[in-house]
Amino acid sequence: MGNGYKRKVKKSLIPTCNIMGVNIAAINMEWLVEYLEKNIADIKGDYICVSNVHTTVTSYEDVSYCEVQNGGLMAIPDGGPLSTVGRKRGYKNMARTTGPSLMGEIFSISAKNRYRHYFYGSKEETLKLLEKKLKKKYPGIQIVGMYSPPFRLLTEEEDKAAIDRINEAKPDFVWIGLGAPKQEKWMAAHQGKIDGLMLGVGAGFDYFAENIKRAPMWMQKSNLEWVYRLMQDPKRLFKRYWSTNTKFIWNAMIRRK
């Protein structure tokens, strides 16, 4: 991304399916967790995008954001429709890998692997709740720092101080909860500057702080989690879902972009 970052592991080893210009990782959760366990020491400084229909359609319409999605280590298929399209295009083992589910998988092996976690984003009260809930649910988890940035652009001095705080904490995983597209742009701008693997997980902080509930497992497995989220926040999400879902169906499924 123009910051001199040199990747230690080969992206060519990660299978991808190009959907509307975005190279979505053609993987499943088992593959991803094994990959992260094996390579975490070599992928610090890089970032993972947790991609869905909304981010994919946004990338299709915004070249610079598409470059951000493709510029990290990988873009994983958080949205069920992405993995569905991938399987139809021949990637039989491709399956949905959601941000919250990935967080849970990593948290559950953190004590054993001595992983260190840093959380950047969300509100101060959410971070406090998050820390409390995680320590209760995952005994031995190491939370080495949390920061709720102001809802504005940081000055150059403030940004440098934030980077220094993160790096001084020596995290393995740096979870970014700023929401799309802000979190992906933030990770791309900090690629090679942060000494930890950055993962943009959107509402993941709220899920684990138990501010909001995830859909029942049958809805998750049926690619209907978006319906559950829509019922929780109809005013904010209806227009987005109507617009992006129709564009995705037309371009990815009908036109095979």
Rank of each mutant, 00 (worst) to 15 (best):
N3Q: 15
K6H: 13
R7T: 10
V9M: 05
V9L: 10
V9C: 03
C17A: 14
C17D: 12
N18M: 14
N18Q: 15
I19S: 07
M20E: 10
G21R: 11
V22R: 13
A25V: 07
A25F: 05
E30N: 15
W31I: 13
L32H: 09
V33A: 01
L36N: 02
N39R: 06
N39S: 06
I40T: 09
I43K: 05
C49W: 06
S51Y: 00
N52G: 01
T56Q: 02
T58W: 14
S59L: 01
S59H: 01
Y60E: 13
V63G: 04
N70F: 13
G72T: 12
L73S: 00
P77L: 03
P81V: 03
K88M: 15
Y91S: 11
N93V: 10
R96H: 05
T98D: 00
G99H: 05
S101P: 07
F107D: 10
S108Q: 03
I109H: 08
A111K: 13
K112A: 12
K112Y: 03
R114V: 10
R114Y: 14
Y115Q: 06
Y115E: 10
Y118P: 00
Y120V: 05
L127D: 07
Y138C: 09
P139R: 14
G140Y: 15
I143L: 00
I143T: 00
L154P: 07
E157T: 14
D159H: 00
K160P: 10
I163Y: 13
R165H: 12
V174M: 09
W175I: 05
I176S: 02
G177D: 05
L178C: 08
L178A: 00
E184K: 02
A189C: 03
G196D: 08
G196N: 09
M198P: 07
M198T: 08
L199K: 06
L199N: 05
L199D: 02
G200Q: 01
V201R: 00
G202S: 09
D206L: 04
D206G: 04
Y207P: 04
A209Y: 00
R214V: 06
P216L: 03
W218A: 05
E225S: 04
R229W: 01
Q232W: 05
D233F: 04
K235H: 15
K235I: 15
K239I: 10
N245F: 03
N245P: 03
F248M: 07
I254T: 07
